[in-house]
Design a protein around this nucleic acid. Structure first.
Lengths: 201, 201
DNA sequence: AAATATATTAAACACTGTTCAAAAAAAGTT
DNA sequence: AACTTTTTTTGAACAGTGTTTAATATATTT
């Protein structure tokens, strides 16, 4: 029994080792520029071996995709300590922005790389969890008389779009050069302008 | 003289023929899934010949990239007939959304495909033209007492982020499934929620 | 020790972007 | 018309890609 357990453990560790190698290269070079052969040689394995642990390249990607979302969700939920819903709402946007800044490569992997073209099935679920969290906080704001007369779901979508838009422009480097300030500053200024808009509502 | 002119004409037409083939495949399959061999075989040419007319794959892409921006800019400028700046501002967002709907593949090519990683140099310029156009319309709104006390550039960036965010989610198919409505409806509802927010400003 | 199950590999297949020497076609010159 | 030069086109080659698979090595069980 302990032998088969050890075997299982070793299989899990191999799984991890591949994922570590893949994470490093994926985050560094992006989806297309990462090859199975690169991932394998990084851990001194043959390319074929990878396929013993993963169905294909896309499955490795999805694992990291989910990983990114788990990290992201944990940073969102860390804000639960903020008592006031509206303050929490505002902080949520900043979590988004900070995540895009500190984990640009993850952000790309999670939101901007398309690979299969189709929606991500599994990772899809955890993404939805993040959205429902945001929606819940907005509901709490509305319960306190904020954003009255505005549909909760549409407002959630709008908030999401705005923050994602800022982060997308940042991650694709479409922001620098447009104005004189740094991209990091611009993200915050853009978000603050949005906050200034809803401040009265 | 007329011979060399004809030669030149033929070279231009070959250029066009390659671009037509490339456009078809690029818009259908995206950047990575389009191969030089595909483009060539579509017009019954050898792969090597493509390189007589274009430096590399990326140059073909950039040509289409610029093409998309020209189309986009023309749709923006068609709104110049709207006299009221604020009405024009609102319509500009809808142009964005409609463009993403009607030319999803162009939108992907223009804003979401990254290929080189670096900012697009040439196509960059025409993108900036679109931004300055938006900024100008916002300035006209501010001249009429709208959006007072808000920095023009930051407000431009915010508007751009919001609309681009909506379109990005749409184009990457990250919108359907979240709520019960169709993606097309959601785009409009999201934008209308934003408009409802700034209506009072 | 033999048989079985598991894990790993190298080679192969059909692709990719790109280069380049050779061939073909067209144009210019005598 | 024949010869030369230039322009255009080609197909093979190179180094790379994801993936499959038959052969091999390792480890476990009998």
């Amino acid at each position: 029994m302990s032998i088969s357990k050890r075997k299982e453990q070793e299989k899990i560790e191999m799984h991890k080792r591949i994922l570590n190698s893949a994470r490093k290269i994926f985050l560094e070079k992006g989806y297309e520029q990462t090859s199975i052969r690169n991932i394998a040689s990084e851990i001194s394995y043959s390319p074929g071996s990878i396929y013993f642990y993963f169905k294909d390249k896309s499955e490795i990607f999805h694992e990291l995709h989910k990983e990114g979302f788990r990290l992201f969700l944990s940073q969102m939920k860390a804000l639960d300590v903020i008592a006031d819903p509206y303050e929490r709402y505002k902080a949520l946007g900043l979590v988004f922005i900070r995540f895009a800044q500190n984990h640009t490569d993850y952000y790309n992997l999670m939101f901007l790389v398309s690979e299969t073209g189709k929606a991500q099935g599994e990772g899809f679920q955890i993404a939805q969890e993040a959205i429902e969290h945001l929606s819940g906080v907005i509901q709490q704001c509305q319960d306190q008389g904020k954003f009255v007369g505005l549909n909760n779901k549409f407002f959630t979508l709008m908030t999401l779009s705005l923050v994602h838009g800022i982060c997308s422009l940042y991650c694709k480097d479409r922001m620098s050069g447009f104005f004189e300030k740094s991209s990091e500053e611009l993200m915050l200024h853009g978000y603050e302008t949005f906050i200034a808009l809803i401040e009265l509502k």
